[in-house]
Simulated scan of single mutants.
Amino acid sequence: MNRTMITAQNTLTQLQKQMDIVSHNMANIDTTGYKRREASFTDLLFQQFNNQTLPQLETNRLTPNGIRQGVGAKLAQSQMVGSQGSVKTTERSLDFAFTTEGQYFKVLEQGENGSSIRYTRDGAFYLTPLSPNETMLVTGSGHPVLDENNNPITINGPIKEFSLQDNGRVLVSMNNGSTVEFNLGVVQVKKSQFFEQKGENLLGLPENFAELNTSMDEILTELNGPLRNQIAIQQGALEQSNVDMSKEMPELITLQRAYQFQSRSISIADQMMGLINGIR
Rank of each mutant, 00 (worst) to 15 (best):
R118E: 10
V81P: 05
E239F: 04
F261W: 07
E91F: 13
Q234D: 03
N113W: 09
I253G: 04
L227M: 11
N65R: 04
I153E: 02
L108N: 07
P206Q: 06
L75M: 09
S241E: 06
Q230P: 07
K191Y: 14
M1G: 12
T254V: 10
A73T: 13
Y119M: 00
I219A: 03
I21T: 15
F162T: 00
I268E: 07
M272H: 02
V145C: 09
D217P: 03
E196H: 11
N149C: 09
F194Y: 15
K106F: 01
I155L: 09
N229G: 11
V172T: 06
R257Q: 01
I233G: 05
L62R: 01
T128V: 11
P206Y: 07
G278C: 08
T100P: 04
Q235A: 10
S86T: 14
A124H: 07
E112K: 15
T214G: 08
V187L: 00
G33E: 10
T4I: 12
A73S: 15
Q48K: 15
S131A: 12
E200D: 15
L127R: 01
P132C: 03
T120D: 02
E112N: 13
N50H: 13
Q230L: 12
N60S: 04
V243K: 09
N242H: 08
L238F: 09
Y126V: 10
L130D: 06
G140D: 14
H24S: 14
A76Y: 09
G82S: 12
G225D: 00
S141M: 13
G225Y: 05
L164V: 02
V180Q: 11
V71K: 14
L108H: 02
N60A: 02
M245E: 09
G114Q: 04
D122T: 05
M19A: 02
T214S: 12
R121N: 01
L54Q: 14
E218I: 06
V71N: 12
G102K: 09
R118Q: 15
N167R: 10
M136V: 09
G114V: 02
T179M: 11
A232T: 10
N10T: 04
L184M: 04
T221V: 15
